[in-house]
Computed example of a mutant assay.
Amino acid sequence: MSGLPKSCSRIFLNGIIYFGTNHGKIVAVNCSSNGLDGGPWPKYKRDNFNSGRQ
């Protein structure tokens, strides 16, 4: 993998995590996750729509 992660990662329902690097590339990593946890605040800025307070 080239470059350090620069952006917040996203986990999609298919178990792939996407993030951007400081070299301007998008990296996809396959994992065993089924997406975000079902809790009320599973990630920074609340959900995949970033609807939490800033």
Rank of each mutant, 00 (worst) to 15 (best):
Phe49Arg: 15
Leu36Trp: 02
Asn14Ser: 11
Gly15Thr: 05
Phe19Ser: 10
Tyr44Gly: 08
Phe19Glu: 06
Lys6Leu: 12
Arg53His: 08
Gly24Gln: 04
Gly38Thr: 06
Ala28Lys: 15
Leu4Ile: 04
Ile16Tyr: 08
Arg10Lys: 06
Pro40Ile: 04
Ser2Asn: 13
Gly38Cys: 06
Lys43Asn: 10
Ser9Tyr: 02
Asn48Pro: 01
Gln54Ser: 09
Ala28Cys: 05
Tyr44Asn: 11
Tyr44Cys: 08
Lys25Thr: 12
Gly52Phe: 03
Phe19Trp: 11
Cys31Thr: 15
Ile11Pro: 00
Gly20Ala: 15
Gly3His: 05
Asp37Pro: 08
Gly3Trp: 01
Ser51Pro: 01
Gly20Val: 00
Val27Ala: 01
Asn22Gly: 04
Cys31Met: 02
Pro5Gly: 14
Lys6Tyr: 12
Tyr44Gln: 10
Trp41Leu: 13
Gly15Ile: 05
Cys31Gly: 14
Ser9Ile: 00
Pro5Cys: 10
Asp37Ile: 00
Leu36Tyr: 09
Thr21Gly: 11
Gln54Trp: 09
Met1Ser: 11
Cys8Gln: 11
Asn14Phe: 03
Ile26Cys: 12
Lys43Arg: 15
Arg46Phe: 00
Pro5Ala: 14
Asn48Ala: 10
Gly39Met: 06
Lys43Ser: 13
Gly24Ser: 07
Ile16Phe: 05
Phe19Leu: 06
Leu4Asp: 13
Leu13Val: 08
Asn30Ala: 14
Ser2Asp: 09
Met1Ile: 11
Asn34Lys: 15
Asp37Val: 02
Phe19Pro: 15
Asn22Leu: 00
Pro40Phe: 10
Arg46Pro: 05
Ile26Asn: 13
Lys6Trp: 08
Arg10Thr: 03
Gly20Gln: 13
Lys25Pro: 01
Gln54Gly: 12
Ser2Glu: 07
Val29Asn: 06
His23Leu: 12
Lys45Met: 11
Asn22Ala: 07
Ser32Pro: 12
Gly38Trp: 03
Pro40Asn: 14
Lys45Thr: 01
Lys45Ser: 09
Val29Ala: 09
Trp41Phe: 11
Arg46Leu: 06
His23Glu: 12
Ile26Trp: 01
